[in-house]
Write a protein that binds this DNA or RNA. Structure first.
Lengths: 192, 192
DNA sequence: CTCATTGTACCTACCACTCGTTACATAACC
DNA sequence: GGTTATGTAACGAGTGGTAGGTACAATGAG
């Protein structure tokens, strides 16, 4: 693994654990077993390294998410698969946590990475839900965009609650609610 | 206003804007027009001042929330009133954002303030929902705890999405989803 | 030899904090 | 009444350490 890659990985880990403001170049260098020169050779500074790390994380998340949302099963099954993805509630969402960081939001170059991720995720969820509506699986009055927002927000909010309580159950409870809601949209169930 | 109060207020503002890690004593002193000695006279350090500021914010939020959740209207109306409370989506939730901060979570004394707030909020929402179920307003199979979690998570997640996109509409869309869900639990509407 | 890569030394600014000090109010003594 | 204790509030200089970065020399593959 090149030093550049080691730096990117170390930065990604630390951004996840401590956020942008809470991560110093020194920490990254130590974890990557690299000297300062390496970092400032490959990257113009902390912000550019963070941007690379964020792209890395975003790619990971997209591929994991796509694994759940693609496939041949029903739309309900795929949305549930998304909600059931293995997550670490106490660690938080790699993208969501960064969106709470003042310096990330202040630097448009960094913020846009998180915004693009959530735009992509919202579009994907919305598309799957819309498919489900077209297939007659979901009630016809289902609003895919609003439901996609609700699902994303529930997951993100679940992380917040779990961290506050230091209890993964808080996350699971919120996600359970989202699953109930999705299930209640299904036409064939006795709810419609 | 005493310097102690000025310091607490300034700290509360800055914690909201920049988080715990991103707020330095120097910033607080400047905003409070206080000298360093004042701060270390009234508080043992940054953590204790932050704790006081967080209590202050928690009290504010509880009173605003209670205004919405109390009252004589129906349970649906009160939950909707809670969801419709005036908020600043781009600023984020005073408590929720801090729960994302590494140093807050690492310091149990600080974290517990956020945990207590969300415990209280969850209990209040759950109680209102349970009332609604008992009154025959909500479907009898409604799970008040899970729905309370879902509502809290949606609001918290809405903040995350709004900050990522730098667009309050993202928050409103998530909350609109929550309101639809609450409405769908109502027995008398044509949905049951 | 050359040039991308990496490490060391150094720099300025800021962080969180300690400490000695002054300002001012009330209380106690003669 | 005057003046000396006592306690609280407020101030800012100074401290050791770290943040984020620059300058430059050493290394090593082609």
């Amino acid at each position: 693994m090149s030093k550049k890659e080691a730096l990117t990985r170390a930065a990604a880990e630390l951004l996840w654990e401590r956020g942008y403001t809470g991560t110093s170049p020194a920490m990254i260098l130590e974890r990557a077993h690299a000297g300062q020169g390496s970092m400032y050779h490959h990257f113009s500074g902390k912000a550019e390294l963070a941007a690379a790390a964020m792209e890395h994380m975003s790619d990971q998340l997209r591929s994991r998410t796509e694994d759940a949302l693609a496939g041949e099963e029903s739309a309900v099954a795929r949305v549930h698969a998304f909600l059931d993805l293995e997550r670490d509630p106490l660690a938080g969402c790699r993208m969501g946590r960064l969106a709470q960081d003042y310096e990330i939001v202040a630097d448009d170059g960094l913020r846009v990475t998180t915004a693009d991720f959530f735009t992509w995720l919202g579009d994907r969820l919305s598309a799957v839900l819309a498919e489900g509506v077209r297939a007659g699986e979901f009630r016809p009055d289902t609003d895919p965009d609003v439901m996609a927002s609700l699902i994303m927000a529930t997951v993100q909010g679940g992380y917040v609650l779990a961290r506050a309580h230091q209890d993964p159950a808080a996350f699971r409870r919120a996600v359970a609610g989202a699953k109930q809601v999705v299930a209640s949209l299904v036409v064939s169930s006795g709810q419609g």
